[in-house]
Design a binder for these strands. Structure first.
Lengths: 237, 237
DNA sequence: TCTTGTCGAATTGTTCAACGATCCTTATGT
DNA sequence: ACATAAGGATCGTTGAACAATTCGACAAGA
């Protein structure tokens, strides 16, 4: 890797370093992990309902993989909190209690709160702006499911202000768990609509470099979101 | 389950709900998980050195379990950040970069910082006091390894102030990762001794209910700890 | 009627042996 | 010295097998 040689590779130097960015996706094949990806999607999208048992034989058969491989996948998702592995009984889609929801929001207040107190980099702000705009666009066309995913992207982007890969990863998992709960909202509009404008407001506070106000605003934001969720959730226990 | 019947069960109603509390300990076995426990200990205690490859056949043979079971264990530890799973190459004890260390401390500042800003419950304070006392006792008898573990207990107890099971678990994993790094300190005394008195000071600030000062003190505390670690660590890259 | 014991089917937990795929080292040839 | 090819070691995955455990059903007993 000596650039001083001035060989033909220099011509594609920039696009090449772009490619390097995708390298993390390369090693990423392995039947067990791919199966885990599929199951993760299915669980978070609600295809498998919370509490439902995932039969090893049935799923291994359906996906065309062996039970052993499937079990490796189960271990991964169990560790992510999406599946509940009970000894000798099988794996079940995790059922979150109201107390779990409260805990998830406790963590959000800590991680997102720390994020908005930081002086944002322009780069991070760009991503946040896009998420806000996407949510507004989706709301304008009554696509409340789209609002939900844009909203998730917004909060994920907020956390990147911490500049910590581990916190990013924690947030990713946290939001995956939270999606398990979102499905109980029968009226997605009622849950997502109030927050579109707040995202815009929070972004403005960040851009104005008023971290303490942003933090206070976020706290109220999360309080209300939690209330909405718990209220719709508590009855089903 | 109608209590109004006034049957004999009423007499044991209270002790029965006590029993439920122990239910979590029941499911607690499974060869794969027990193997994961053993390996986790071995890795954090330094028996397996960072970078070392863990042969499936050799370890499965040594522990008397099958390769498939061992692989399930590997998946668990891989997700905890202690093992590095490279496709078709095997699992290696994770090697943390200086950037990883910085990230771990970034997370600590967020999680522990949030913790000390809370009004501590008397119960949590008791555990913290014990950890401080243990560290002082160990230091008095030149047991610097003991100081290290008491110190870890101290910070783990700090995090419980957040009253969040998920943050507790995150901290547990984070500290396990950090232990991977601690082993590079050839002089444990130089690394642990300065913090015994600071633990006491931080505890005093908590007891005096001065959260902002506690937070500022903790930040400086973590800054110095990180500096010490990185300085001893950077050369070995 | 309620509790307790027992049986059997279904499912998970774990092992084992096998084979292709991939990586690493070493030997080979230019 | 360098690229290439061969070989061995190890991983990835499978399929089958069997023990262990759960759970529901049903019978026996208080």
């Amino acid at each position: 890797m000596d650039d001083s040689l001035g060989n033909v590779e220099d011509a594609v130097d920039s696009p090449l370093s772009d490619l390097e960015h995708d390298r993390s996706r390369l090693g990423r094949s392995s039947t067990a992990e791919r199966v885990a990806d599929i199951l993760r999607d299915r669980v978070t999208e609600g295809f498998f309902e919370p509490g439902q048992r995932l039969s090893e034989e049935a799923i291994a058969d359906a996906l065309g993989v062996s039970r052993n491989t499937l079990r490796e996948s189960f271990r991964l998702l169990g560790h992510e909190g999406l599946l509940d592995h009970r000894l000798n009984r099988g794996v079940f889609v995790r059922v979150l209690s109201a107390e779990d929801v409260a805990d998830l929001y406790r963590v959000r207040r800590v991680i997102e709160g720390a994020a908005v107190r930081r002086r944002p980099s322009g780069e991070a702000l760009t991503v946040i702006r896009e998420a806000v705009a996407d949510a507004e666009r989706a709301a304008a066309s009554d696509d409340w499911r789209g609002v939900g995913t844009a909203n998730i992207r917004f909060h994920q982007a907020l956390v990147t202000l911490n500049q910590s890969p581990r916190l990013d990863e924690s947030m990713r998992q946290l939001l995956a768990e939270l999606r398990l709960v979102f499905h109980v909202m029968k009226n997605p509009r009622a849950f997502h609509e109030p927050f579109v404008a707040r995202n815009r407001k929070l972004l403005a506070l960040l851009e104005a470099d008023r971290p303490e106000e942003a933090a206070a605003f976020l706290d109220a934001y999360l309080d209300e979101a939690e209330q909405l969720l718990v209220r719709a959730y508590e009855p089903n226990r």
